[in-house]
């Protein structure tokens, strides 16, 4: 089983030959929080397995977030039926809502605002119908806090650990984040986020392996892959991991919905596009040590650079 994007669908994240941390958010032309790809059924199956086997690792919420969770459910359902009317439907009779997922052939009726009519909390319920991880940041007394989330595919972080933490506390480990005042600037940017004007950004890392569920809690399982990268296997083992993220201000609760859709592409596929191959080779070569370290690339970056170089030379020769 693989969860690999094909080349055409893949959200290649780079714009130049150099990469640094920045607030690279841009306004979304289409206000859409979720995307359905060809991996939908596989990924939803995996998500639900993880939620069943590791519920506390994958879903957390503080008790004051229920209203905001309902608001997220409504927003995501509206996006699903508006952007994918052949795959989802929603009918409302007063507060009785009927939601249909036609891909999975599932129907759920519930009373909007009444938790006892759903098997899960609202955020946990709607998260089981989308490939995205869904995070709620509450605005409380001028700061943002991670107060609820459904997170199945984290890039080496822990929802249970971060629950209730402020934006600054969560991002504290990022090197240079505080020194360059990026934390203040991005926090101010987020606090100014307004309803009706959502934003999006991409984030990236390199993975030794093709797992989507790389939680901090299971690092012992997947982290050792970093030691197994060789020039021979890099093309298949190493993946460019890209997170397509969106940010929506919730008008009723004044919270922020943060969505993360994770895509994986093996380097062998990346190398098929000459422009990407060349650019990514330059980016990796130039990447400063503090970013290499934080992204967990120290153990296999050089092997990957060698691999990319060989691919470039191969193409030049042919």
């Amino acid at each position: 089983m693989t969860y690999i994007d094909n080349l055409e669908q893949f959200p290649y994240p780079f714009k130049g030959n150099m990469y640094r941390y920045s607030n690279n958010s841009i306004p979304l032309d289409v206000p859409k929080s979720v995307d359905i790809t060809s991996n939908y059924e596989e990924e939803i199956k995996l998500k639900r397995q993880l939620l069943r086997d590791h519920p506390k690792r994958c879903f957390q919420s503080l008790s004051h977030t229920l209203k905001a969770q309902w608001e997220i459910l409504a927003l995501v359902m509206n996006h699903l039926v508006n952007y994918y009317p052949d795959k989802f439907s929603l009918t409302k009779t007063n507060t009785l809502w009927t939601f249909r997922n036609l891909i999975l052939n599932e129907t759920q009726q519930f009373i909007y605002g009444d938790e006892s009519t759903l098997l899960q909390q609202p955020l946990d319920f709607i998260g089981r119908h989308v490939q995205e991880d869904l995070i709620l940041m509450s605005e409380r007394d001028g700061n943002l806090y991670l107060d609820a989330g459904q997170l199945c595919f984290p890039a080496n972080w822990s929802l249970a650990f971060d629950l209730g933490m402020s934006f600054r506390e969560i991002h504290y480990p990022i090197p240079g984040f505080k020194e360059e005042k990026l934390d203040d600037r991005i926090l101010n940017f987020l606090l100014r986020l307004e309803a009706g004007n959502p934003w999006g950004r991409n984030n990236w890392s390199l993975m030794a392996g093709n797992r989507l569920d790389t939680s901090l809690e299971t690092f012992d399982d997947w982290g050792k892959g970093r030691k197994q990268v060789t020039a021979e296997n890099a093309g298949d083992l190493v993946h460019l991991r890209v997170e397509v993220q969106t940010l929506f201000r919730l008008s009723r609760s004044n919270g922020i919905l943060f969505t993360i859709h994770t895509h994986l592409l093996p380097l062998r596929k990346l190398a098929e596009k000459r422009a990407w191959l060349e650019q990514f080779y330059h980016i990796l070569q130039e990447l400063p040590p503090y970013i290499v370290d934080y992204k967990g690339l120290s153990l296999f970056k050089d092997v990957v650079i060698d691999y990319l170089k060989v691919q470039l030379e191969k193409e030049d020769a042919s």
Binding site: A195, G196, S251, R252, S253, N254
Partner: peptide
Amino acid sequence: LPPFSGGS
């Protein structure tokens, strides 16, 4: 219209 939070 979108619902809103108190003070909007």
